[in-house]
């Protein structure tokens, strides 16, 4: 247990090994996803016909087939596909004829801002409500919050969105129900966070997207906190006569946060996936809306690009969560966890 006495970011052999192992696993997952994306492009519909339309001459078709390299052996095509993806080239959209990479960079800021704000909303409100409901376990407000959260969990995302639109846009007229409002361009990044209209447009989608994650985090923090409050060191702290507030803040809360980081990190992945639904309800011009339109119009290059992009995000998030775990829990870092 020597590792316990080290500082936070100690790099030892055990940790390096595990991180290298995780990196290899992640690359394997990404290669597999790239294979699925490649197979979609190659075998779902005829790429040449989709790009040229049905009126193209045989000669045109032959030229494009050669140019796309469709005459080469399949492994060669796959390797070339991976190479192109690595240089951020996802081909051309069947429907619009625009390079998919351009569509993504145009729409990615909208999705990332939405995901970020709803993740912050979910974390901040989820943790504070979780701590509150755990400390005031018998209070009427805590009980009310808990039972309301049950309803929130069983509502599908799109119904939450519609419900919010109904109340806050249609009936009360307080907040906009679609689009991003006014955006400002800062260095190629289209942000909606700098204008009042942009921020107002963000409220309903962010709440819709974050609500489920918020209830999840809240319930998790609550049960962890209740668990921690029963531990001996907390009871000794009370016995020593420390202030209730300082016990909660300095001893109980930090110890509940470890599992929360894992779950919250993994939930960030589902936020990006569920953004598809939210973006569709609010006509939010992000990559989720782009994806669902691609599914509707069978725009294969856009679909496979989205798949690769989301896989990349998920794998990165998982890696970061693993590392955060290392940084926080000394038992895993020193390798002592495995010996138990």
């Amino acid at each position: 247990m020597a590792g316990n006495s080290h500082g936070l970011f100690v790099w030892n052999g055990h940790m390096a090994l595990i991180i290298i192992q995780r990196l290899l696993q992640s690359s394997l997952v990404l290669l597999l996803v790239a294979f699925v994306a490649f197979s979609m492009f190659r075998f779902v519909g005829d790429p040449v016909e989709n790009l040229l339309g049905q009126e193209a001459t045989l000669e045109d078709r032959a030229i494009l087939t050669e140019r796309l390299g469709l005459n080469d052996p399949l492994p060669v095509q796959y390797i070339r596909f991976v190479g192109k993806v690595l240089s951020w080239d996802f081909g051309v959209s069947y429907r619009t004829g625009v390079p998919v990479a351009d569509m993504i960079s145009e729409r990615l800021p909208a999705t990332l801002e939405l995901a970020l704000i709803s993740a912050i909303f979910a974390m901040v409100l989820g943790i504070s409500l979780g701590v509150y409901t755990a400390i005031n376990r018998r209070g009427w407000l805590a009980n009310f919050v808990m039972s309301t959260s049950l309803i929130g969990v069983s509502l599908p995302t799109f119904l939450i969105g519609i419900l919010l639109i109904w109340v806050f846009s249609v009936e009360l007229g307080w907040l906009p129900s679609f689009g991003r409002g006014e955006t400002t361009d800062i260095g190629g990044w289209d942000t909606g966070l700098l204008t009042i209209e942009g921020l107002r447009s963000l409220v309903l989608p962010a709440v819709t997207l974050g609500l489920y994650q918020m209830t999840l985090i809240m319930r998790l923090v609550r049960s962890e906190m209740l668990e921690v409050l029963r531990e001996d060191y907390i009871r000794f702290a009370f016995a020593r006569g420390l202030h209730t507030k300082s016990i909660h803040q300095r001893h109980a809360v930090p110890n509940t946060l470890l599992p929360v980081i894992t779950v919250a990190g993994l939930q960030l992945g589902s936020i990006i996936a569920f953004a598809i639904i939210t973006e569709s309800v609010f006509q939010w011009p992000g990559i989720g809306l782009m994806f669902i339109n691609a599914v509707y119009f069978v725009d294969i290059p856009v679909m496979s690009a989205y798949l690769i992009l989301v896989a990349l995000m998920f794998v990165t998030i998982n890696l970061i969560v693993d590392m955060a775990y290392f940084a926080i829990d000394p038992r895993i870092r020193s390798g002592a966890g495995g010996g138990k």
């Binding site: 979609m40 519909g45 996936a273 598809i276 639904i277 669902i292 599914v295 069978v298 294969i300 989301v310």
Partner: peptide, 25 residues
């Protein structure tokens, strides 16, 4: 494991997209 990395609704949308592509319009 790989499939569990992704939320199932995303997989469902993807399969729907592929299936739509394999069926004539």
């Amino acid at each position: 494991d790989v499939q569990l990395t992704f939320p199932s609704i995303l997989i469902a949308m993807l399969v729907a997209g592929i299936a739509r592509g394999l069926v004539p319009p």
